[in-house]
Simulated assay, not measured.
Amino acid sequence: MRKFLAALILIFSPVLALADEITIAALGDSLTQGYGLPPEEGLVPQLQAWLDGQGAGVHLLNAGVSGDTTAGGAARVGWTLTPEVDAMIVALGGNDLLRGIDPAEARRNLDTILKAAQEAHVPVLLIGMRAPGNYGPDYKAAFEANYADLAQAYGTLFLPDYFAGLGEGDPAALQRWFQPDGIHLNAEGVAKIVAAIGPTVLDLAARARAD
């Protein structure tokens, strides 16, 4: 009988593991999409490999669109949140900064995204962007505050700076983690970002399982 029960466990354990798998959509721009990198070296594939190494039971969906602003994310969040999506990573705002978009407009768009996730009962990890100083201190403060304020309002998991995993120091020294355009990360830079955000993605998966 013990051998029979053991055989049943071996047969059905893959099915049980599949049933417990969490699907997380990564809603973002070219940094999420993997611009300029071989498919296996982008953010989503590297993060998937990291999660697999942790035995996380997570399947990532790449919902990154190169060039997308927060407005683009707001426009497509509805069809990103398909029934199989259990949680969502939101990493948008870099293109808003490149275009100097009004922080109030970016805030409205992020609010739309988070509200859609809340209505779908999908937990979120919101990843912020640090604004450069060339737009002035008021712009910088307002833009960065969007993320912290909305994360608190919606009770999301929150990382204030997408690039924090690269470390502090001389900006010129950090360029070794970027492609020649100085905007998009190279494979080694992506790996550092994955190592920094991975533990919080595990927390996100845990939230999704608890819901």
Rank of each mutant, 00 (worst) to 15 (best):
R2M: 09
R2A: 14
S13K: 05
P14H: 06
V15H: 11
D20M: 10
E21T: 15
I22P: 07
A25K: 03
A25Y: 01
D29G: 15
Q33F: 05
Q33T: 06
G34T: 12
L37A: 08
E40N: 12
L43M: 12
P45F: 08
P45M: 09
Q46I: 14
W50L: 05
Q54Y: 02
A56C: 12
V58G: 14
L60V: 03
L61Q: 13
L61K: 14
N62C: 03
N62W: 00
G64D: 07
S66P: 13
D68Y: 03
T70A: 15
W79N: 15
W79F: 13
L81W: 04
T82C: 06
P83K: 12
V85Y: 13
D86I: 04
I89H: 13
G93D: 06
G94R: 04
D96W: 10
R99Y: 07
G100F: 03
I101G: 08
I101T: 09
D102N: 14
P103N: 11
P103Y: 06
R108A: 09
N109E: 09
L110K: 13
D111V: 04
D111Q: 08
T112Q: 10
T112N: 13
T112L: 03
I113P: 03
I113D: 09
L114S: 02
L114Q: 02
A117M: 03
Q118C: 03
Q118I: 04
V124Y: 09
L126Q: 08
L126F: 02
M129H: 11
A131I: 01
A131M: 00
A131D: 00
Y135R: 05
G136F: 02
K140W: 02
E144H: 03
E144R: 02
D149M: 10
L150N: 11
Q152T: 01
A153W: 00
Y154Q: 14
G155Y: 00
T156H: 04
T156I: 05
L157M: 07
F158N: 10
F158H: 12
F158S: 10
L159E: 06
G167F: 07
G169A: 02
D170N: 04
Q175M: 14
R176H: 08
W177I: 13
F178K: 08
D181H: 02
E188H: 08
A191R: 13
A191L: 11
K192E: 09
A196M: 10
I197Y: 02
D203R: 15
D203G: 11
R207W: 01
A208K: 05
A208S: 04
